[in-house]
Simulated scan of single mutants.
Amino acid sequence: MASNDRAFDARYSQARSALRGELVAVLVLGVLLLVVLVVLQWYLARRFHRILNPGVLGATVCTLLAVLLGAQVISASAGHLRVARHDAFDSVVALSRARAIAYDANADESRYLLDPERRGRYERAFLEKSQQLYGLRGATLTSYDAELATTWQAYRADRRDLRFTGEFRRELDNITFAGEQSAAEETVEAYAVYERDDRRIRALLAAGKEREAVEFCMGWEAGTSNAHFGAWMTALDKVTDINRQHFTTSVRDGRSAVTEQLPGGCALLLAAMALTCLGLRPRFAEFR
């Protein structure tokens, strides 16, 4: 995912630079063409003692509309590109990382039960992945749940509160679309339930209730750890889908802005050429 993100970011930077260059070119060439038409109108009025040439005037209006339309199309494309890259895809990256980390953490939890000789290693790995998802500085497995609850309550009171980090924070700092805020918050709350389940598993094991710990960890009945993990993944997929749908929509709208409006701009420029020729034709006839 990281390599795809870097590749996409490089393409995005190239596309953004290209759009900036195209916008400058449209504006500069458009202004030059308008200046030429205005000077031509002035010359015809002075040379032939007429106030306005209707053909050249129509060409000027068409050119102005073509320039405005071209600038609008490029600006709209840049806007759709920004939404696709930053508003949508940045969230998809964070949430996809979260999903991969979640499955690794869940596997570490199972290994903790099944491999007694390496329990310390898997416990540390689980905590490390928890910190990648919802980072709490200095937290241990013993203090993690309480600190998560405290910092989450603070965030719900003030969304500018910065006492936690991680992939969930990346998503929560990039809320853009309708329904995304509530879906992201539901994901974190489902994650908190799963984290509390982990502590219950470890407590059962410490109390010598290994069979109960295994059943609670690996069963899929309602109220078990795996059931809560599934609910967490469902919530995570929901907020990911919101961003993916908007990414797809932004890409489609960006392409539509070009394919649907560009022919209109070309038609206006062709009309400007035709009107200029029609406007000059009577004047050329006077030289015969």
Rank of each mutant, 00 (worst) to 15 (best):
V31W: 07
V31R: 05
L32N: 04
L32R: 06
L33H: 08
L33I: 07
L34N: 06
L34D: 01
V35E: 02
V35R: 14
V36C: 13
V36P: 14
V36F: 12
V36I: 11
V36E: 04
L37S: 02
L37Q: 09
L37G: 01
V38F: 03
V38A: 11
V39N: 11
V39I: 10
L40F: 00
L40A: 07
Q41H: 05
Q41V: 04
W42N: 13
W42V: 14
Y43F: 13
Y43L: 14
L44T: 15
L44F: 00
L44Q: 15
A45N: 11
A45E: 05
R46V: 00
R46C: 00
R47A: 09
F48E: 11
H49V: 11
H49E: 13
H49K: 15
H49N: 15
R50K: 12
R50P: 14
I51Y: 06
I51A: 10
I51L: 14
L52H: 07
L52Y: 07
L52I: 07
N53I: 02
N53V: 04
N53P: 08
P54D: 00
P54I: 00
G55M: 03
G55C: 01
G55D: 03
V56W: 02
V56N: 06
L57W: 03
L57S: 08
L57F: 09
L57P: 00
L57Y: 07
G58W: 08
A59M: 03
A59V: 04
A59W: 06
T60Y: 08
T60G: 13
T60S: 12
T60F: 11
V61R: 06
V61H: 06
V61F: 12
C62N: 10
C62D: 13
C62Y: 13
T63C: 08
T63F: 04
L64I: 05
L64N: 01
L65G: 08
A66E: 06
A66F: 06
A66Q: 06
A66H: 08
V67Q: 02
L68T: 08
L69T: 07
L69H: 03
G70H: 04
A71M: 12
A71P: 14
Q72A: 14
Q72E: 15
Q72L: 15
V73A: 04
V73R: 00
I74R: 09
I74A: 09
I74P: 05
I74T: 10
I74Y: 04
S75M: 12
S75P: 05
S75W: 14
S77F: 11
A78M: 07
A78Y: 12
H80P: 00
H80R: 14
H80C: 10
H80D: 09
H80N: 14
H80A: 07
L81E: 02
L81T: 05
R82H: 15
R82E: 07
R82I: 00
V83H: 13
V83D: 13
V83A: 15
V83W: 09
V83Q: 14
A84K: 10
A84G: 05
R85F: 10
R85A: 03
D87C: 01
D87T: 03
A88F: 02
F89L: 04
F89S: 08
D90C: 10
S91P: 00
V92L: 07
V92Q: 13
V92I: 12
V92S: 09
V92G: 04
V93D: 04
V93A: 12
A94D: 02
A94I: 02
